[in-house]
Simulated assay, not measured.
Amino acid sequence: MKVLLIEDDPRIARFIRRGLEAEGYTVDVVGDGRDALALARAGEHALLVLDRMLPGLGGVEICRTLRSERYDRPILMLTAKDGLQDKVSGLHAGADDYLAKPFAFDELLARIGALLRRAGRSQEPTEPVLRVGDLVLDPAARKARRGEREIQLTPREFTLLAYLMENAGTVLSRARILSRVWEYSFDPGSKVVDVYIRYLRQKIDTDEPKALIRTVRGFGYTISDD
């Protein structure tokens, strides 16, 4: 899921970008207000994280302009100004939520998740529900369950599981998984795929009579109910 981070402080931008990417988001960063407006208009991002004070064009003006053009993606506004009137003006401009600096990353992550869930409920599902045996993944609702048991997944785990289920029965190499899920064009030599496959197995196959995620030695991984 793609997030557009509009922040002109390089230190804060790096902090937010690294944290969100670790959670599985794809993050584009821009520090100039006018450039940010053009990128947002392209409509490629599920959510905007928008700083209030920006060179070129302020965050409130960006927000107001986008909403006047019927831009419907969630906007989370960040600012060093935490006065009541500042919050009110940001919300009136069209921001969906408002977070004052400094903030804890966990709170930022929780607010982003809440905005995306809210946006998902207000739109018609565009992606089909995926099923492998009694494992069900709903991309629109961002929910997974096996049988009657709901499974809590991080964004990266969700993306990996969706890719496996979209290709159920097909053996996927580590290189293909890295390219699709982590967007790496090369193998960095890490065990990141193996680690996340282990995370998924713990959540999906532990204590179940049948394991769905399988290793094909020398080739890669697959998910199947066969």
Rank of each mutant, 00 (worst) to 15 (best):
L5W: 00
Q202S: 14
I112W: 02
A80S: 13
R70Q: 14
S179M: 11
T222R: 14
D72A: 14
I177K: 07
E148S: 12
A93N: 04
V88F: 11
T26W: 11
S185F: 14
S122N: 13
S68I: 02
R70M: 12
G90I: 00
R14A: 10
Y71C: 03
D138N: 12
Q123M: 13
H45T: 03
D72Q: 14
G169C: 10
G56T: 10
L4T: 01
D72Y: 03
H92N: 11
A110F: 06
V88G: 04
A175M: 13
V171D: 03
Y163A: 09
P155Q: 06
A38H: 15
G169M: 09
A36D: 01
V3K: 01
T206Q: 15
G133C: 08
Y25F: 10
L137D: 02
L47G: 01
P139R: 06
A141G: 08
P102T: 05
I12Y: 06
V27M: 08
K2T: 07
G43N: 07
G220A: 08
S68V: 06
P188D: 15
V49A: 01
F15I: 10
R67P: 01
L4H: 02
S179T: 14
R17V: 05
L84V: 12
E150F: 12
K87V: 03
H45A: 12
E23Y: 06
D72L: 08
R142F: 15
D96M: 06
Y199S: 09
D207I: 12
G19S: 09
P155K: 02
V30I: 13
E7C: 00
P102I: 04
A36K: 10
G113E: 05
A175V: 13
L99G: 01
G133K: 05
D134Y: 05
R156S: 11
G189R: 05
M77Y: 00
D205E: 06
V192M: 13
